[in-house]
Computed example of a mutant assay.
Amino acid sequence: MIKLSDIDHVKFGVKDVDESSNSWQVEFGLTERTREGRESYLAVNYEPYSIVVEESEEVGIQYAAYNLHPDFSLEDAEQHLKAVGVDYIRSANAIDFVDPENNGVRYVPFRPRAGQDVYPIASRLTNSLHPGRYRKLGHVNYLTADVNSMVDFYVNVVGQELTDRLGGDAGAFLRIGPDHHVNALVNTGTPHFHHVAFDMGDWGMVPTTFDHLAQHGRVFPWGPVRHGIGGNLAGYVRTPELDCFIELYADMEQIDEFHEPRDFPDDRHSSSVWGMLPPRSYFRFDEESIAMERESLRGIYE
């Protein structure tokens, strides 16, 4: 059975790499580490990079990449994929394949901790990172047409663990380490990448972070909310240029080795203990719903 270490990075196709890289830096506080042709590699914190944007005709996510556990090499991962009958493409430093709904998945080798990475973030020194940065890349979320097939694939092929279910077949949350989820699946009947999420580290970052994004014209269709499942405080920013949302969160539930998957009811409390359900537009990516959100029109709740 394959074993993972953590989520490593997410790659997006964008119309204009200069514009996108600038947005990630100025609006979301990431740091451009390097530029290779029409690709920009951006770091959330001290890591080499967590977001890659590439100029492309196809806008949106290209793949989510996961670090292999140090006990597993790329050659081991190849043998695993062969054994479970999944087609893949091997390159020098990665393995690429797709899930049952054609979402890209990438394996990359374990990234050992070295230098300052062995110390807590507060103990490190920097002369290049922006103030007010997020703590880390946290997770990705997909809308799905078949949650059970996707759970089976991400557990038995990708190597994640089921943390919890939502209303049986309404949704599922999967993890790699102690964070409640590194991947979430919501059964809407139509597949679509929904969001990439960043751990803000602290509740105190919410007002200044959200104010800053609002000053750049960003819209928060939902949040801040306190999720019943996962326990995290969260807000969701619409990013039409990436064809998804960005979630900013803090205080996610930590899972121990004795955890048994739970089944949360598919109700208001599981979505937000504060009682605020998302607008219907939260599950849509068409121009009409995006416009309705921006103008706060009644139709976003229908």
Rank of each mutant, 00 (worst) to 15 (best):
M1N: 13
L4W: 00
D6V: 00
G13R: 07
V17C: 05
E19G: 15
S20H: 08
S21D: 05
S21G: 13
N22M: 11
S23T: 08
S23C: 05
S23Y: 03
W24Y: 10
Q25G: 00
V26Q: 00
L30W: 01
L30E: 05
R35D: 04
E36M: 15
E36K: 15
E39I: 04
S40H: 07
N45R: 06
P48E: 11
Y49C: 04
S50V: 01
E55G: 04
S56W: 01
V59E: 12
G60L: 07
G60Y: 00
Y63M: 11
A65P: 12
Y66M: 04
H69K: 03
H69I: 13
D71A: 10
F72N: 02
L74Q: 05
E75T: 13
D76W: 03
E78Y: 02
L81N: 05
L81A: 12
K82D: 15
V86E: 12
I89F: 11
F97S: 05
D99C: 07
V105D: 04
R106S: 05
F110L: 01
F110T: 01
F110H: 10
R111K: 10
R113G: 00
T126W: 15
N127R: 12
S128W: 12
L129A: 02
H130C: 01
G132Y: 09
Y134T: 08
Y134S: 15
R135Y: 02
K136L: 01
G138I: 00
V140C: 10
D146A: 14
N148H: 11
M150D: 03
V157Y: 01
G159E: 09
Q160E: 09
Q160G: 10
E161N: 12
E161L: 09
L162W: 03
L166Q: 15
G167L: 11
G168R: 11
L174N: 00
P178C: 03
P178E: 13
P178M: 09
P178H: 12
H181W: 06
A184G: 15
L185D: 14
V186Y: 14
N187A: 07
P191T: 02
M200W: 03
G201S: 07
W203G: 05
M205C: 01
P207T: 01
P207I: 01
P207C: 06
T208S: 06
T209W: 07
A214H: 10
V219R: 09
F220A: 06
G223N: 01
P224A: 11
R226E: 04
I229R: 06
N232M: 15
L233G: 09
Y236L: 09
Y236K: 12
V237A: 13
E241T: 06
L242R: 08
L242M: 04
D243Q: 12
F245D: 10
I246W: 11
E253K: 13
I255T: 11
H259F: 12
H259P: 07
H259M: 02
F264D: 02
F264G: 00
F264R: 04
D267T: 10
D267V: 13
H269S: 11
S270R: 11
S272E: 04
G275V: 12
M276K: 15
L277P: 06
P278K: 04
P279E: 09
Y282A: 15
Y282I: 11
F283D: 15
E287I: 01
E288H: 02
S289E: 10
A291P: 02
E293H: 05
S296Y: 07
L297W: 09
R298P: 08
R298F: 12
G299Q: 12
